[in-house]
Nucleic acid binder design. Sequence first.
RNA 1: GCCACUUUAGCUCAGUCGGUAGAGCAACGCAUUCGUAACGCGUAGGUCGCCAGUUCAAGUCUGGCAAGUGGCUCCA
Length: 652
Amino acid sequence: MINITFPDGSVRQYEEGITGYEIARSISPRLAEDVLAIAVKAAGDTTIGKGEVMDLNRPIEADSSIFLLKWDDEEAKRVFWHSSSHLMAEALEDLYPGIKFGIGPAIENGFYYDVDLAGNQITDADFPKIEKRMLELAREKQEFVRIDVPKAEALKHFEEKGEKYKCELINDLEDGSITYYTNGHFTDLCRGPHLRSTECIKAVKLTSLAGAYWRGDEKREQLTRIYGITFPKKSLLDEYLVVLEEAKKRDHRKLGKEMELFTFSSRVGMGLPLWLPRGSVMRYELESFLRKKQKQYGYLPVVTPHIGSKDLYVTSGHYAKYGKDSFQPIHTPQEGEEYMLKPMNCPHHCEIFRSAPRSYRDLPLRLAEFGTVYRYEQSGELHGLTRVRSFTQDDAHMFVTPDQVKGEFEKVIDLILYVFKIFKFENYTAQVSLRDPNNKAKYIGSDENWEKAENAIIEASAEKGLKTVVEYGEAAFYGPKLDFMVKDAIGRRWQLGTIQVDYNLPERFQLEYTDADGSKKRPVMIHRAPFGSIERFSAVLLEHTGGHFPLWLAPDQVKVLPVSAKYADYAKKVCDLLNNSDIRTSVDDRNETLGKRIRENSLLRIPVRIIVGEKETAEGTVSVTREGTDVGAMKAEEFVSWFKAEMAKELE
RNA sequence: GCCACUUUAGCUCAGUCGGUAGAGCAACGCAUUCGUAACGCGUAGGUCGCCAGUUCAAGUCUGGCAAGUGGCUCCA
């Protein structure tokens, strides 16, 4: 007999070799229906987490603590979707004989399988057919059967089937660690775990079709990636589709159009946003918000040109790294001159540092600029405002002594967290991006400096209590970084704030300061941008708020609607009063019904609406509605102080 | 850049088998003067993304190009 410990601490005894499914059934048949997988941790194992996720029908041989995983557990969803990708593969093999399989993992929302269609054609019009076949197979209640196979046998099996991608995967695996999972007539190389049976899969939706390079390498074959999602209940699929629809309504490209914030023109060029008047007001507000805070943190403003001599970027090393993939150098009437559109601000700021002798007393020197930069992003990568070819960084560079790195880094974390708090970004990921330890040649700078910089970031994040994830190979070529990632409406993750330590540029630009003992020392640079770029930040903020900006940021803050033309003069008087108090106000006295004007101004996301009619005109009052909620009537002067107080609350 | 799909009025979208283009909203005019999310009537608006080809005839079929969308790769 073995002891099984449950999450509540209770212990039950079972026969050796009992399976998760049998344990669940011993508790209740209903539980056995709902449970999808099991997490098992051997007795005495003190690691955190629930333990290893396993198939429900794998025997448990020793004392263990267990979690029975149901749909609401993330781990169970992954198992569910991973099994669903096998189910889809089985259906695809039925419908498209000769098809070859790559990999088919679970992802955040659903799963995909990469396939080589081997001459077949699939379009999204074929999805219903595939979905139907998947459901038919699911109803066959196929069990997922796991078997261990020797490497040689696995290779032989897949070679005979002509599965060259699988063979490549097997070649990279250790003999003895190879397992198959079979459901119905479909056998896949797979580590598992899987569902007990396909019968749990009750609702299927294939979502999209895309190209994907084999093993993520653009020099290799491009496979067809089929995305899908499945659920244990039809109603869950319906709910998911509704959520997706809702999310699409918050797409910043749609809102940007509706709210008249920005536009694009293919004649101006792809990825080059045109900011409309309302969007520009919002941009300026974002900038002044940050300028004010940065002043408190001791930043000094600078302004630098949009172009720079090619030599500048040769010196910085950016030309060697990105020159070929940039907007190409601009040639001038004068022979031999070459200028580049500024792809980043740092080299300019380095030259500002060099413009005067610097003392240790001047450090940290913090130079800040809303600098517009131009990068030739790949055409297929452009996306609304989140990935563009011309964007404005809320950039700053700190020149510090080596001892000041950590302290300065922490100050920047404080600033970024302040920004995120004001905008209520709560679900961000702080990602520490370090070098790829297996490919150090990709990076410039000495090992020693890299170690120092990486440690500074890790320590500073820890001291600020940030929960970080560490990604190897994600560092910039000149230094490690701490990035703050936020999700958009449909769950894509975008990098916003970033902090980067750089020992390299000071070296290349031969930057120096005079230390207390009179010796020349090399400063360290910290790059940072709390928004990342105004463009991307605006996009994510639009999706985050659904266009309902805080009062201080709304392009139009107040709209005054006279009930009819008779009250237009009073409306204008109120409007002037508010504008004189720096509240962005306009009157909508168009010859339209009140209801229609209310509707249209609501769609523009104007946060505050004032209605004036006979009563208000007589009493000198305004009737106020904020975001559709009635605030009541007040004197026009009272409104000004109410509004200012509401704005102040948002910035606390 | 690669794969797939898409492109019709300012916006959102119909358009069957190839027979020469339609709606709603917006705009403009008239009427209306209105109390918290779409009043009514009328007018105007399109080289069907662009360029070729097939055809008696192309929004529709074929090819190329451009832009957009979803991914991949990339992201200083």
